[in-house]
Write a protein that binds this DNA or RNA. Sequence first.
DNA 1: TTGACATGCAATAATATCATTGCATATTCT
DNA 2: AGAATATGCAATGATATTATTGCATGTCAA
Lengths: 101, 101
Amino acid sequence: MTEDELDRVFKALGDPTRRRIVDRLRERPDQSLFEICALSFAESGTALSRQAITQHLDTLEKAGIVRIRWSGRTKLHSLDPGPLRAAAELWLRKHLDGEDR
Amino acid sequence: MTEDELDRVFKALGDPTRRRIVDRLRERPDQSLFEICALSFAESGTALSRQAITQHLDTLEKAGIVRIRWSGRTKLHSLDPGPLRAAAELWLRKHLDGEDR
DNA sequence: TTGACATGCAATAATATCATTGCATATTCT
DNA sequence: AGAATATGCAATGATATTATTGCATGTCAA
């Protein structure tokens, strides 16, 4: 994992809206943009525009955290646990050695 | 750990200069601003201004990752592993359950 | 007490991020 | 074919981030 990839992963995680999206995608994969918008609204009360969500999803996709798949006219989003795991292993874990885990 | 704290930790980690600072502080604690500047230069070749490093250190301090201690006219920086560990435990780990670790 | 040293504070500028709006394109259904 | 659906693309604006420069303040040491 390159420095740039690490940048993108941590930056992607540095936003609460994106973290919520990742949480929801983990509960259920293959969600469409509309589903994610609806859940985002249901959860937070405030409605972000569809484009805002799209941009967050792009950020997650560029970080490699989210994978997309087209089914007709709907774009389905799922998690790719790889980059998250890589970031945790490569970087966070070395700062936690010697602790009670 | 609140959402805001999580934001600050991940955002702080989303910059390669700051990650390098954390790496160096882990190797040796209680480094002054000048030492960090010097190491940063020695490592990367390009010299960031002292103020740029100061701002990065502020970001790390606000994220709770770096603790400071004054000794006369020198400001000594050390790591606080707490927020890093909390972020890893609270957030990253739940996305890694069921894997071979 | 003067000079060198270590750092702080403030202003500025370039670029990036986050969210919005309006319009366009492609797919499904009747 | 026409209407509704799901999404893309582009422009804009507000705010945040990153790095710079110049000057000020506090501390140590000769």
